[in-house]
Design a protein around this nucleic acid. Structure first.
Length: 251
DNA sequence: AAGTTCAACAACCGCGAGCGA
DNA sequence: TTCGCTCGCGGTTGTTGAACT
């Protein structure tokens, strides 16, 4: 069977959009608003599939788009967000007003990747290249160990396993059967309270409580609060700002 | 000037999630 | 509970223009 096509391919245009098509789409959305992409092309008199219309509108025609070069601040913010969120382009775009996920994705692949490589940083892991190379070499080696991963996990998540001797999976390194899914722990994610005001770090605000960037995790592992947690997160002037993960979804 | 390579970015494709019938 | 539809996301491809040989 397979899934049904999203549109009648035989009767739809593909490729670059013409000025007339753009105008039609803009006029229709101005009159009726966004949404119902499936029926939009027909209603707007466009020989395009709904998906194509949506993409064109979101990535190119939306009036609130900020066209033009990325600033240095945006660069650094993208790098920071990518280190926390990975390839969650839509979430990253949510923190960059006027930028689209597609735009950021393209920009990452063409500019920032190279920039990080030039800095000697592995764009995938955001760690120094030699370290990444060493890790890769370790994977290549016959004695496959998850110790490095566990070590990182331990240092980033506050996980304190009693047994430091971790069973080595030698047969199927690709299969990590130690997946753990657990609901958000209130103890773990409970925001720090400084001076009666609830503040959480930038990482936690993004829903990445276990990130190495987290500056408020120390309490959760029983240690005394650190300076950074006392002062709150100060990235790009976000110090003291209480961020809500849901605010990332700006659409 | 012509051909080739590379960078940038627009657009497409397939999949999964969410939702209502 | 299941099924089908729609939407949104992320990966990938295609196209275009600039730079280089």
């Amino acid at each position: 069977m397979g899934r049904s096509p999203c549109c009648e391919k035989a009767h739809t245009n593909k490729g670059a959009w013409t000025k007339e098509e753009d105008d039609r789409l803009i006029a229709y959305i101005r009159a009726h608003g966004e949404g119902c992409w499936r029926s939009l092309p027909k209603a707007a008199g466009l020989l395009r599939c709904g998906k194509s219309c949506r993409l064109r509108w979101i990535n190119y025609l939306r009036p609130d788009l900020k066209r033009g070069n990325f600033t240095e601040e945006e660069d650094e913010l993208i790098i920071k967000l990518h280190s926390l969120l990975g390839n969650k382009w839509s979430l990253i775009a949510g923190r960059l007003p006027g930028r689209t996920d597609n735009e950021i994705k393209n920009y990452w692949n063409t500019h920032i990747r190279r920039k990080l490589l030039n800095r000697g940083i592995d764009p995938a892991t955001h760690r120094p290249m030699n370290e990444a190379a060493a890790a890769a070499a370790q994977v290549e080696a016959t004695t496959i160990s998850f110790a490095a991963v566990k070590e990182e996990e331990k240092s980033t998540s506050g996980f304190s396993g009693k047994d430091t001797k971790i069973p080595v999976q030698e047969k199927c390194p690709d299969l990590n059967l130690e997946l753990r899914i657990s609901p958000p722990s209130h103890n773990q994610s409970e925001p720090l309270k400084s001076g009666g005001r609830v503040t959480i770090c930038f990482s936690c605000s993004l829903g990445v409580q276990n990130s190495k960037e987290c500056s408020c995790r120390n309490d959760s592992v029983g240690s005394s609060s650190s300076d950074s947690s006392a002062t709150g997160y100060d990235f790009l002037g976000l110090n003291g700002v209480v961020l809500d993960y849901r605010s990332l979804e700006m659409k």
